[in-house]
Design a protein around this nucleic acid. Sequence first.
RNA 1: GCGUGGAUGGUCUAGUGGCAGGACCUGAGCCUUCCAAGCUCAUGGCCCGGGUUCAAAUCCCGGUCCGCGCACCA
Length: 582
Amino acid sequence: MSDETTSEKLTELAKRRGYFFQSSGAYGGVGGFYTFGPQGAALKGNLEDAWRERFALGEGNMEIDAPTIMPEPVFEASGHLAGFDDMLIECPECGTSTRADHLVEDNTDYEDAESLPIPEVEAVVAEYELACPECGAGLAGVAIEEFNLMFATSIGPGDSQPGYLRPETAQGIFVEFPRLKEYARNTLPFGVTQIGRAYRNEISPRRSIIRTREFTQAELELFVDPADDDPDLSAVADVPLTLYPASEQGADGSHLETTVGEAVADEVITDPWIAYFLGVSRTWYERVGVDMDRFRYRQHLAGERAHYAADCWDAESEIDGNWIEIAGFAHRGDYDLSKHGEHADERFTVFQQYDEPRTVERAVVDPEMSYLGPTFGGDAGAVVAALEELAETDPEAFDAETVTVAVGDDDHEIPVEQTGFALEEQTEAGEHVTPHVVEPSFGVDRTLYTVLHHAYSEDEVDGEERTYLALEPTVAPTFVGVFPLQRDDDLETEANTIAATLRERGLSVTYDSAGNIGRRYRRQDEVGTPFCVTVDYESLEDEAVTVRERDSTAQKRLPISDLAETFTALRSGSLSFDELEG
RNA sequence: GCGUGGAUGGUCUAGUGGCAGGACCUGAGCCUUCCAAGCUCAUGGCCCGGGUUCAAAUCCCGGUCCGCGCACCA
């Protein structure tokens, strides 16, 4: 191996062989945007299909496809408008940009500076005479710049309706919850998946396609009844896991080799749903070609967790010695649906019927308005609301002669007989429940990068160096190369016929007759084509061809008539090349 | 965003204030009966804009993009 890192060699290969490259290169390029070339688009499609097969179809979930642009109120509800907003203050002396809200929180008693309006934060900076953490220059009077990570646009003519490109695909699922739960016939649990683009106007995109401004996510939002629903852990109990728990992430922490079952029993993973998906996902990652020796699940540290997440684990892959996040598994509780329930016009709950209707005693009020109205005038409505709330929270307050409620700064006394207080027996068939959300969220681009990186291999064949991508046949963008042994009309005709037949069977086939046979094998090795078929002069007599496997370069002789069926089986994974007779 | 290094055919790279070179790749032909062989020919390049100069791909300024460090990654 040379001094060049695998990432550098991979980036060059990706550009040259059509996996991915900088977008709009003819116009100087634009930061943080990449185009997937013919091979990359095919690989990405195959990965998405594999994900869909496992996480949508395989779990009985439903897939939707929501718009990438959504109106402002959606993001007011989700918290992205405020939370995705960074307040940056730039030091006039040294030019360092600092998060102004962090500066205030670290140096004053303010705990949630992020939620303050910008002029107020500027005032606090001035009042406390806060200084640049780099050079110590005073920052009083320096304007705070607002930077929102969401791409803004306007919907329709004029600017009356602002919209944003979604910063995650998840909101597209959450906002449609009222309709989706109808589709799911109001029963929990149910899961909704979506594969699509998301956009973040990153301050500095980095490291090839690892951190871009437009990327593809594959997300599953599983809606569960917090009281009732549990996963079938027996299905994944024996799946091995490499874990990096929060408790190990100190100076010399180590990985924990365990299984899903043991990790749950030992309470390393406390949430059963998270445990279930870690198991399912580990098996999936292995199947699409992630090297399990360079894969782990890392638990988020307490301070790193999003505000809504009770527990959170990331899937991480190792790239040139660095661990990068390729998926997140979060239990989001009822955060998202509650927020949308508060902001939107519709109900973000599911009515859960009890096994048996329940009779409950409920404190109710039926205030005498002919008394309250004249007595309290404009406050009467507020008094009624206060009485209703009091009946619910403290029914014993109605045991006295009079009831006191506070409206604004005034305390109002109401004779208890005027409140219409009663304890009523009611029959309830069920209740409205805000489902909890379990979210496995996959970064498709990063998964693709990991698969390529882990597949990148170098070896020697007959004394010649060789570079190949050991991609799994299931996801390899080109499945088979078909060649005539050399340029010859009869061989070329036969090879073309075979190529056409295989294409009809839905396989991705490339035909190549240029250069000697070894060169053509190496071309396919470099893009990761798992199999090659060579038609020679004998083929014209015995109706058989040489099939060559990429990783081992081993060859087997197979009847032409068997090719389509054999390749279909090799692609699905139900057959391996070693098992082939030949 | 700050700092720093860089940008030459598709890819990798040499080079200089005075006609831009190589290797690999790619295409055509010859040769070739299974792993990048050989021969002939061909296509294709100095990131963008401004300045200095008789002359700029080269020097200067600004920008774009890439790598790295810091910050950021809800």
